[in-house]
Every structure is written in C-alpha cells, then in structure tokens.
Design a protein around this nucleic acid. Structure first.
Lengths: 340, 340
DNA sequence: ATGAAAGCGCTAACAT
DNA sequence: ATGTTAGCGCTTTCAT
C-alpha cells in the first residue's frame, strides 16, 4: 500500500543507501551523480513515496514532537498559548501533541508520562497543583521542560508568566486611590503562584496606605465563573461594607457581574469592580470592565521561543530561568469613587 | 540513558521475547510461569523501563496518534472542538496532534501531509476553502477523515456540523415577526457551507413572507470581528433603511455592536441584532444578545466519537455520513419591534 | 560513485 | 515454558 524506500531504490535501479542519500539532499556530500539523484527523485515522485516519520524517528532518535499540557483547552488563555506553540513549532517542522489535564495533578502526571513515552523532544506545561518534582525529574531525564503561567518559586526550570504581584499592586491602587477601603477579593486557585502573588501584591498596596490585609475578605477556590459568582454572592451578603471587588480572572469577574445583578447592586455606582486579565469583549460588557490584562500572546510566544531554543541550542547553555511578562492597565468604567 | 527491553530481559535473566510478553500481559497466553513474569516486572520497575512508543509504532504499524486540523485554535469554537477530541482520545490511550491552518488552504494541505507522514491513525479536520479533494484522497489512502463545522455537499466523508439552514430560518423569523423587512446580513467566509446554508435559510424565511432576497444587503468576508465591524459600518452608511442585522458569528456580532456604538444607533431601539452562535458572556453584554446558538460540545463530542469508532470498528461498516446538530434559540434583549 | 549491512527498540512467528 | 530470529522503514558506517 504505502511505498517504502527500498521500492523506490528498486524502481530507480540503485541501492537503498543511494536512494536515501539522494532524497535527503546528501547527494553531493556523497558524490552521487546528478543523473542518479534525479532518477531517484523521479522514481520517488512516480511512486508517491513519503518517508515514514516513525522509522525515521526510531533511527535518528528524534521524533520532531513537542508536548503541550494545559489544564483546560477550552479556556481562551490556554488555547492561545497552545496556538502560539503550535504555530512556532510548525514553522520549524515540529508537530505538537496537546494534552488537557482537566486541572488535576493525577491526569497531568499520567499525560506527561505518556508524552515522555512518545519521546517528545520538549514540553511546555501549564502545571496544576503545587508540586514541581515530577516536572523537574522529566527535565533531568533529558526532556527540556518550560513552565507557563503557573510557575513555581525555587524551581530550576525555564518559566514564563505575568508580573502577577506588580499587576495586583496596580489593580488595588486603582481602587484605593478612589477611596475604597473595604475590598473583597475573588481569588482563583489557592496555592498556585499566580494566585499567591496577586494576593501578596494586593496586601502590599493596602499596606501602602496603612490598611492591614483581612483574610476574611478573600473568597473563591478557582479561576472559574462559578467560583467568582458564589464568592461574590457570599461576600456581598456577609460583608455589606464592601465597596469594591478585585476579581482574579475574567471568568471570576463575569461571575461578580452576575452576582451584582442578582443582588441588585449597580456597577460602578454601588460597587466597583476591577479584574485581573482582559476579555476581548470586556469593553462591550453591560459594565465596561477596568482590567489589568496579561499579555497572553507574549507569554505564548516566549514559551514557544524558549522551548524551540532548547531544542536547537547547545543543551548546557546558561540563561535566565524566570521570565515575568508585563501587564497592562486598561481603564474602563467599572470603578467609581467611594461616596462618604 | 533510557532502559531498553533487552536490558530488562538481561536483568531478569530471560530472553527479550519473554520479557516483552510478560510486560504486555501475554503471560498466560504464552504460558509463562507466574514466577518469571513477576521477575520480569520487578526488573522493569527497578530499571525504570518505559517501552519506546516509537519502536512500538514502527513494529505494530499503529502510532496511537490522532490528528486535528483547525483554522484558528484561539477561536473558542475550535478550541472546544479540539478539547473534546483530546479528552476522548486520551481516554482511549491515543494522543492528539493539533495543527492550526490559519484559515489558509495551502497551510491545511501542508499540515495534512505532515500528519499523514507521521501516520496518524485518523483525522478530524475543520477545513478551510471549498475543495475537499485532498481530504477525500487521504481518506481513500486509508486514514479515516472526519469533517467538523465546515463540511461539503456531495462528499463521502463523515461530517458533523450544525443545522445551519434551519438555524438561520429561525433567526430571520425572529426578526420578520417583529416587523423587520430590511435586514442586513453580516456574513462569514463566503463559499463555506455554513455560510451558504445560513444565507439560504435566511432567504427562505424572507420568502415565506413574500420578500425577495437582496444580495446588496449581504456584507462581509470572514467570521472575524473586523469583518463584522466593517460590514456593519458600510451597511449602516449605504442603507439607512436597514432596521436589523443578522450576524453570522459571535465575533461578527461584536463588530456590529461596536459599529452601532460608533454610528450612534441604540440597540435594540434603533437597530435590532441577532447572532448565529452564542458567547458565554452574551448575556452580560451592554446589549444582551439574542442568539441562535450551536451545540459546540455536541459537535466536538460526536466528531470525537466518530473518529474513535472509525479506529476501533470494522473499517467497511456502513453508517450515516452527515450529522447535523440542532441549534438552540436564546432570546435576550437585542431585538425590538419595528416602529412605523 | 555506489552498495552491503548493522542497528534504532520492539513484537511475533517459529523453533525447541 | 522459553529462546532465536526476522523484520517494521529508515540512516549511516564501512567497505569497495
């Protein structure tokens, strides 16, 4: 059914080695006569020969495969990152295997195992959970690993993420300068670095004006809309003195807007909202959202860049491990001054 | 560095065949003593043996790979489809290679070639362009191809898409029953089946009330926001008598909303808008959008199902080729009665 | 300038 | 119950 190299060789009346060399452009390096080379190429064309990548991979110990593991491919943030990797990889002749860990460490581990078995040459992972040991092990075993978004402190892997702390300081200042003093926080997944750094940035901005951080104003367990909605509902019920909300993700913020509607608070008159991360349609919302937005493409492209560089370059090169990508403030209309 | 089967065999003091059979659960089929089997497994564990999928693939002529080709992975619609395939495939032990064709046929062809060379066992493609020949050829050469979203008439491939025509009839009726007679259409990519079927459904709904379809009311060249915005601007300028817009995608609709703002028309008072396809936040828009929404997960899951079935089942089985997934109307607040 | 043959790591048909 | 060996399709060393 499928044509093999030896059939091409036979058709062209040469040996497999000559056929291989002719087709791989090693013709002159092996001083194969032009005439022979052409004959081989014609035979290959005629038979519709396509070299088996599987056989090649085995022989060359090079699969041309890059693995990508994300917690939720339907989340536009991770979809964009996957796309960046895919486009860069394709341009260099690599293919990318994507795997969706469904936010669960056990799946992540299983998928990584699978990818390692397939001998991907490098991995980009947006990890779940708070442990990086398994990732470091893979890296030590020889498959370069690049972390994106969810990174780890004290970790020797290449990492790309946003300036979460700085961004959160900015966001909170946006509120405090308008006089807000009781700010509810709709957090994402506790324990993840982005979440903790944003919390710490928030606390820092509060400290600047002499307010101490109040843990009871922090609610939520996930970057999802459900978490945002439920946290906002509870916060608005428990703490009627809250005048502003800081949502840690776009879905969190959407949940907050729904909660505001449901509890009959007008944004921004009765309640101010600021979100970490932007949605493409944030300006078309019933309340145009003020956001501190991440450079998603920047993160994806840098991750892609690092991973491909890891493939090409001398393995042992020393280079910067952590990369923190700047965020950008977009002022819209979801914040008002507190009235006293 | 990496352990091979023969090292395991040596360590366990058996031959490679026994090692292979023990580890693949063929122990009893080959009446290998339990004791031996255990010894092999222990050796494998001890050495951290992981069978090379590459070698396996070559030997078994089975790569365990499924290819997915989409026009734009950052589009939530295609991201969801890719996710469905990935999740289903992973559950069956397959891995998926995703490729992004950037809406260009030439890229699509190149990527498909690449995937075929990698000997993926099946393909799900959301094709670009109006030609299906290359896809049919792949299918005939032995790699089952399932088409999703962008399908083709008179095509023998398995296909999954929405009921575009029916959905469009519904959408247009939503407008005509409110008295709208001059309806602008913001179309997507002309020539694609979803686009043409929606046009035809639109014309059909107009015909029902004795209006003939006016081609000059149709604008746009893409499913993007830019296309939606520009088409709406032009339409509103050229045809001041337009009272309603029918947008063929969520991004098209967002463009329309921006155009409405820019040209100082209030939706729905001065202009009604209906969109084909829903956004998760459509209800939080400044104008909550009335939509005819596609069952994205339904499409993805069925496509995944068909493709995995094609791998498992007897190849020659006769089954339904085309699957049209129902759409659902979601009434919100972007349509008003025409005032006369 | 070309060919023979080894071998990548694995499975399975064929011994014994 | 276990071992030997061919071979999947390719690249490359080592002849010639």
């Amino acid at each position: 059914m499928t044509t093999t190299l030896s059939q091409v060789a036979e058709q062209a009346g040469v040996s497999v080695s000559v056929a291989s060399r002719s087709l791989n452009g090693h013709a002159k390096a092996y001083r194969i006569s032009d005439e022979t080379a052409t004959r081989v190429k014609e035979a290959a064309d005629m038979l519709g020969f396509r070299p088996s990548q599987t056989a090649r991979s085995l022989r060359l110990k090079k699969t041309g495969l890059v693995g990508v593991v994300v917690p939720d491919l339907s989340n536009p943030f991770f979809a964009s990152i996957s796309q960046s990797i895919a486009l860069s990889a394709e341009a260099e002749g690599y293919s990318v295997i994507v795997a969706d860990s469904r936010e669960q460490t056990e799946h992540e581990i299983r998928l990584l195992q699978q990818l390692e078995d397939r001998q991907v040459e490098a991995l980009v992972v947006c990890p779940v959970g708070t442990e990086s040991k398994h990732l470091q092990q893979i890296n030590e075993r020889g498959t370069p690993v690049v972390l994106a978004d969810r990174t780890f402190p004290d970790c020797e892997l290449l990492q790309v993420t946003s300036e979460h702390r700085v961004g959160a300081v900015t966001a909170t200042r946006l509120l405090t300068t308008k006089g807000h003093r009781v700010i509810g926080v709709l957090q994402g997944l506790p324990g993840t670095l982005p979440n903790e750094q944003r919390l710490s940035g928030h606390a820092e901005a509060l400290a600047e004006i002499g307010i101490s951080f109040d843990q009871s104003l922090v609610m939520g367990n996930n970057f999802t809309e459900t978490s945002g909605f439920e946290s906002a509902m509870q916060l608005l019920a428990d703490r009627p003195d809250v005048t502003a909300l800081f949502a840690f993700s776009t879905p969190n913020a959407m949940g907050a807007l729904r909660a505001a509607i449901k509890s009959e608070r007008h944004v921004p008159q009765d309640l101010s909202v600021v979100a970490f991360d932007d949605s493409p349609y944030a300006d078309l919302m019933n309340v145009p959202l003020t956001t501190v937005c991440q450079d998603v493409d920047g993160i994806g492209q840098l991750a892609a860049d690092l991973v491909l560089r890891a493939l090409t370059n001398s393995k042992g090169r020393k280079r910067k491990k952590r990369h923190d990508i700047k965020t950008q403030v977009i002022i819209r209309n979801s914040i008002s001054s507190v009235k006293d």
